[in-house]
Simulated scan of single mutants.
Amino acid sequence: MPSFSLRLAAAAVLAVALPFTATACGGGAGDKLVIGTKFDQPGLGLTNPDGTMSGLDVDVAKYVAKELGYPEDKIEWKESPSGQRETLIQNDQVKYIVATYSITDSRKEKVSFAGPYLITGQSLLVGADNSDITGPESLQNNKKLCSVSGSTPAQRIKDKYPGVQLQQYDTYSACVEALKNGAVDAVTTDEVILAGYAAQTPGAFKIVGKPFSEERYGIGLKKGDTELCTKITDALKKMEADGAWKAAFDKNLGPAGITAPAPPAPDAC
């Protein structure tokens, strides 16, 4: 029979090991996979009144989770505002983030990306009766433009259109509310995001001008985690090949009047 000291040592080893088994990536019983997404973007990442999640980003995240061994009831959703995404990944508060997350060189210094799974472009949302805003150049005549702190669209406006009065809020839903109330003249972000808001309130808003950037949406994860990045990339390729990607796009963004483009070839890993 083992001595008391040996049994005590064995218990201590077990106590240390247990916290790691609870967060394993194998999808076993009791495991939870924490995924970051937006909670306020219709058509992409939205918390519904009944507490469920919907949107293209959500469907992509769930498909990837399933391929990693996690059924939907093992997913824990974490709200991931634009300005907090890198911090959430670096602090291990999420396993990965699917949240209209543009792949950029500056972000790749802090996190890794799998993808892209969608290519879109920056555009403008205005009131349905607006006739004097036709593109970014027309904003430089003292127009108030809203975007989100820490976002690629906000930085692009700062860099390329310094004459615009840029208002930065924490969320795009706050920007849309400001547009609705007349506090700003336009909202800027990627066209698919704006389309979701326009579809949510039919007849209130419209998208103007042509997209003036190319945004490659990727799935953000811990920098240097090549194994997970490769698994996610493989899952995205499978989702596109079996038709699930197009079905998710049509379901979530089709009602906004956007036709599904050809899916991009995931290549970030």
Rank of each mutant, 00 (worst) to 15 (best):
P116S: 13
A12V: 08
I258Q: 11
K158G: 03
L44P: 00
Q155I: 03
D242W: 10
E67H: 02
E76S: 08
Y197M: 07
Y172Q: 01
D129A: 11
Y70L: 01
G163Y: 14
T188L: 01
L194A: 00
N252R: 11
A61Q: 07
D57P: 09
L8C: 13
K110P: 01
V98M: 02
K237L: 13
P49Y: 10
E227G: 06
G69F: 06
G243N: 11
T52L: 06
I193S: 06
S106K: 15
I119A: 09
K231L: 09
I75M: 07
V164T: 03
F205D: 10
L179A: 06
V184K: 04
L118A: 12
V148W: 04
C25N: 08
R156D: 10
D234M: 12
N130W: 04
I207H: 00
N91P: 03
I133G: 00
P136K: 02
T226W: 15
S213T: 03
S151H: 07
L14G: 10
E215I: 04
L221Q: 03
K210S: 14
P211Y: 12
Y63S: 03
N142R: 11
P71M: 14
G182T: 08
P81D: 04
V34S: 15
L124I: 10
V111L: 06
N181F: 08
F39N: 09
W77A: 00
G257C: 10
I75D: 13
Q165W: 09
P261Q: 15
L221D: 01
S3N: 14
I89G: 07
Q84W: 08
T21Q: 15
D250K: 09
S106V: 11
P211S: 10
I232A: 01
I35Q: 05
V192K: 02
T233K: 05
A99C: 10
I207L: 05
K158W: 04
L125K: 04
A24I: 02
K62Y: 13
T23M: 00
K231I: 06
I207N: 00
L253P: 00
A9D: 13
G36T: 10
Y172P: 00
S3W: 07
G220Y: 02
K66F: 08
I207Q: 07
A29E: 15
A99P: 07
L221S: 02
G26M: 13
G30W: 11
F4V: 09
Y161T: 05
E214T: 13
V60E: 10
N142S: 05
C229V: 09
L125F: 08
G36S: 04
G224M: 15
Y161Q: 00
K108C: 02
K95T: 15
A241Y: 05
G55A: 09
V148A: 09
I133K: 01
T100F: 02
D225P: 01
Y63F: 06
G127L: 14
T226Q: 15
S102G: 14
G127T: 14
V192C: 01
K237E: 15
T37M: 06
S213K: 01
I97A: 02
C146N: 14
M239S: 01
G203R: 09
A99N: 08
C146G: 10
I133L: 01
Q122T: 06
